[in-house]
Design a protein around this nucleic acid. Structure first.
Length: 809
RNA sequence: GCCGGUGUGAUGGAAUUGGUAGACGUGACGGACUCAAAAUCCGUUGGGCUAAUCCCCCGUGUGGGUUCGAGUCCCACCACCGGCACCA
């Protein structure tokens, strides 16, 4: 019979669904294993091949773990709030809930067509009020613990989405989602104090099994740096505090710079002689978009204005120095002010040259500081012109100066982070309403927990407004409410939460998706936590992954979840590119639709190919021809079933290869080396064709193949009558016998002087003497040995022997 | 600029982590089957030299080095990819 995937795939998908073959049971005695993939955003385009790669990979892992006797939780859901749906709804005048519902139906169908072993009874949907009730509940807990606050500050504003963005959502000055310019806008926003967790988010990475590039990227994003704060007296009578990592250079601080937004400026207003100039500069800085501010940062022309009539005093030498405002100093980092040491900082140097500030060398070891700043922080620099620090290296001078500052009470050690608090409001409709109410008398008040969920109301229009308010703000009867505290008139918050809210805790809901009394039961949380293996995209490293670690730590602190960290292991897959290596996009016309591949070759071919395509962690280009190769491989497996010998034992000629393949496939799946696991299976099938194949050979092959091509494996399993105790996916994973993987004889490479000359056959574990004799017996080696003296023999057991000769004296 | 990664046949990629470079797949070439094509099956396929699938030489971005032995380790460079970017 010819292999016809369209018939058999539906048959097995139906059966798995009906029998709930992959349902996880909370509390089972079997060891648990929680495998997680990032749930999709159900876009109108449907599932694309970029989803298939991580989903197939974790499906392979989940299927193998079940066969190894684990109670596996492998869930799926939908991260359905968000802008594309809202924009589609606006354009087509359909309610976003309806759009979401239809897209989810389409996604579900597509996911089932690929044969994924998800537990379909645990599907979550972030837009379901029963789900976002708990998203809102977590927000209220954050608020009650002082980690959510509303403040007015300059925020990133996407000009196209008409919505604020978190720092993490701004990439190179443009909107991460739509690519439009991001400007700075003063707005009152809900913020989450992720900075309070900065240190723990760094420290706890050490205990986690995350791939290194994820850890490094998160650490860099959090950006811890240790330095000191130093107070500079100012002629106005108050003092200006700066943060520096180079307090050793304090004697070289010849001027100061504050950011245009610095709050002391307003206070000094009356003493600043050129106030007009200052306000003009402030206005100009505020107008600049993030893109303009970040563009060409390295050699950007420095701008600024000197404050006339206000000067600072360098506390180490009493010298009076000027103060400038300049946008090269950021308001949001450190204290928003710096001491400038032009001799040893390239930015200060560039500014000093332009504005004619004094450049004083305080660390020797570089070139002429009038020509170039000397910034080395290692032992190459020796302090000069610095009184009590003279002669010390930079490394020695920093702690010495810190100690001195602390003793004098004018400075202190200080740690700073680049990480900013999380801007949590969005001026859009399709998101979770923020469950807060504003009362003129009582201020911001949380709504009572028994009022949750605060359901998103129906509105006439979902259009974002040009005044920067959420569409909800136009819903007068919804907005108007009473204060939960005093009962007086009050207004609801009309901003909604960002898309990252629902995805920050969804993995907890899978553990107990229908719970009405808690986000999940204690019992379920205890049983399933933490996620054992989470695979997802690198693009989420400093967004979703960081956010969810933060929420989880908070939930741990308030006793809701039992573990400090949500995910024990994190891996990441590379992108799937179009044929030729270009990014897949509609405009290039190189988008591969999984449905087409399934229709033409079958889901098993799609799965096998997407795993075989290349190194899982690297980007890989689609190739139609290579898909055919995988189909050919499956055809060969299928056809093998017609020519089996009857023995239930392994064919002797195949035995060693089978045991090696079991080991290789098992190890490779754990190590994300799916491509070589399939290569091993292909080679094994080639062996079976060469040596003949018994029923026993086939049985093991089908088990090893079943995670990759589960439909075919089940069909052959059944037709060959192996199914007396269940489906292939319910069998025990094959075990290999180490002793069977070694043959009695091995091929040994023979090198002379490190160069391969020939190979010889020797018994396994042969010792040097025997190997040497065999090697010298080889005519080729004998010829090379003629007239030579053997000076050294290196034997790598069962691998190679290297003979070093020198001419006989 | 800083941090991280990668560089291997025509091509996607292997290589037990210092031990026979090119597994497996694609493509190409030759053959079988066929009236023919497709499909399938068998063989060949890094380069040079050659009548030869004997020898020999070269070969993992470039140049050095360590080692009996280097794709793998060290130093310097080149190219590309990703992240961060005036973070004091």
């Amino acid at each position: 019979m010819k292999y016809d995937p369209s018939a058999i795939e539906k048959k097995w998908q139906k059966r798995w669904l009906e029998e709930k073959t992959f349902a996880a049971s909370t509390g089972s005695d079997k060891p648990k294993f929680y495998a997680l993939v990032e749930f999709p955003y159900p876009s109108g385009q449907g599932l694309h091949v970029g989803h298939a790669r991580p989903y197939t990979a974790m499906d392979v892992v989940a299927r193998k773990k079940r066969m190894e006797g684990k109670n596996v939780l492998f869930p799926i859901g939908y991260d359905a709030f968000g802008l594309p749906t809202e924009n589609y709804a606006i354009k087509n005048h359909i309610h976003p809930a309806k759009v979401t519902h239809d897209n989810i139906a389409n996604f579900t169908n597509q996911l089932q067509m690929l044969g994924y072993s998800f537990d379909w009874d645990r599907v979550v949907n972030t837009t379901d009020p029963d789900y976002y009730k708990w998203t809102q509940w977590i927000f209220l807990q954050l608020y009650k613990h002082g980690l959510a606050y509303k403040t007015t500050m300059p925020v990133n504003w996407c000009t196209s989405c008409k919505c604020v963005l978190a720092n993490e959502e701004v990439v190179e000055g443009v909107c991460e989602r739509c690519g439009s310019p991001v400007i700075r806008k003063e707005k009152s926003q809900w913020m989450l104090k992720i900075t309070e967790y900065a240190q723990r988010l760094i420290d706890d990475l050490d205990e986690l099994d995350y791939i290194d590039r994820v850890k490094i990227q998160q650490k860099n994003w959090i950006g811890r740096s240790t330095g000191a704060e130093v107070d500079f007296p100012v002629t106005t009578g108050d003092s200006l505090t700066v943060f520096t990592t180079r307090c050793d250079t304090l004697f070289g601080a010849t001027y100061m710079v504050v950011s245009p937004e610095h709050k002391l400026l307003e206070k000094w207003k009356d003493q600043i002689a050129n106030w007009d100039e200052v306000t003009a500069y402030q206005a100009e800085a505020a107008r600049k978009s993030d893109f303009e501010r970040t563009e060409l940062t390295a050699d950007k022309e420095k701008t600024g204005v000197e404050l006339q009539g206000v000067r600072a005093i360098n506390p180490v030498n009493g010298k009076e120095i000027p103060i400038f405002i300049s946008d090269y100093v950021l308001a949001s980092y450190g204290t928003g002010a710096i001491m400038a040491v032009p001799a040893h900082d390239t930015r200060d140097w560039a500014f000093a040259k332009k504005f004619g500030c004094e450049i004083i060398e305080v660390v020797s070891g570089g070139e002429d500081v009038q020509k170039e700043a000397f910034t080395a922080k290692d032992d190459t620099g020796i302090l000069v012109n610095s009184e009590f620090l003279n002669g010390l290296t930079v490394k020695e001078a920093i702690p010495a100066m810190t100690k001195w500052l602390e003793e004098k009470g004018i400075g202190r050690e200080k740690v700073n982070y680049k990480l900013r608090d999380w801007v949590f409001s969005r001026q859009r409709y399709w998101g979770e309403p923020i469950p807060m109410v504003y009362c003129e008398k009582c201020g911001w008040q949380p709504i009572s927990e028994d009022q949750l969920p605060l359901v998103l109301p129906e509105v006439e229009s979902y259009e974002p407004t040009d005044d920067g308010e959420s569409p909800l703000s136009k819903m007068t009867d919804w907005v108007t409410t009473t204060c939960p505290h005093c009962g007086g008139p009050a207004r609801r918050e009309t901003d909604t939460m960002p898309q990252w809210a629902g995805s920050s805790w969804y993995f907890l809901r899978y553990m107990d998706p229908d719970n009405h009394d808690a986000l999940a039961s204690k019992e379920a949380l205890e049983y399933w936590s933490p996620v054992d293996w989470y695979n997802g995209g690198m693009e989420h490293t400093t967004l979703h992954l960081l956010y969810s670690r933060f929420w989880h730590k908070f939930l741990y602190d308030i006793g809701v979840v039992p573990t400090k960290e949500p995910y024990a292991k994190r891996t990441s897959h590379g992108m799937i590119l179009g044929e030729g290596g270009e990014k897949m996009s509609k405009s290039r016309g190189n988008v591969i639709n999984p449905n087409d591949v399934i229709a033409q070759y079958g889901a098993d071919t799609m799965r096998t190919y997407i795993m075989f395509i290349g190194d899982f962690e690297k980007a890989a280009a689609w190739s139609d021809n290579a898909v055919k190769g995988c189909r050919r491989f499956l055809d060969r497996v299928w056809n093998l079933a017609d020519q089996l010998t009857d023995s239930s034992d392994y064919t002797p000629a195949n035995e060693s290869a089978i045991h090696k393949a079991i080991k290789k496939v098992s190890d490779d799946i754990e190590a994300l080396k799916f491509n070589t696991a399939i290569a091993t299976l292909m080679a094994l099938v080639n062996d079976f064709y060469a040596n003949g194949c018994s029923k026993g050979d086939m049985r093991t092959l089908l088990l090893l193949l079943s995670p990759f091509a589960p439909h075919m494996a089940e069909e052959l399993w059944e037709s060959l009558g192996f199914n007396s105790d269940g489906m292939a996916c319910q069998q025990a994973w094959p075990v290999y016998d180490e002793s069977k993987t070694v043959a009695s004889e091995v091929t040994l490479a023979v090198q002379v002087g490190g160069k391969l000359k020939t190979t010889i056959q020797v018994p396994v574990d042969s010792e040097q003497e025997a190997v040497l004799a065999a090697a010298l017996a080889d005519p080729k080696v004998a010829k090379l040995a003629d007239g030579m003296e053997l000076v050294k023999t290196i034997l790598v057991k069962n691998k190679l022997v290297n003979l070093i000769f020198k001419p006989k004296a």
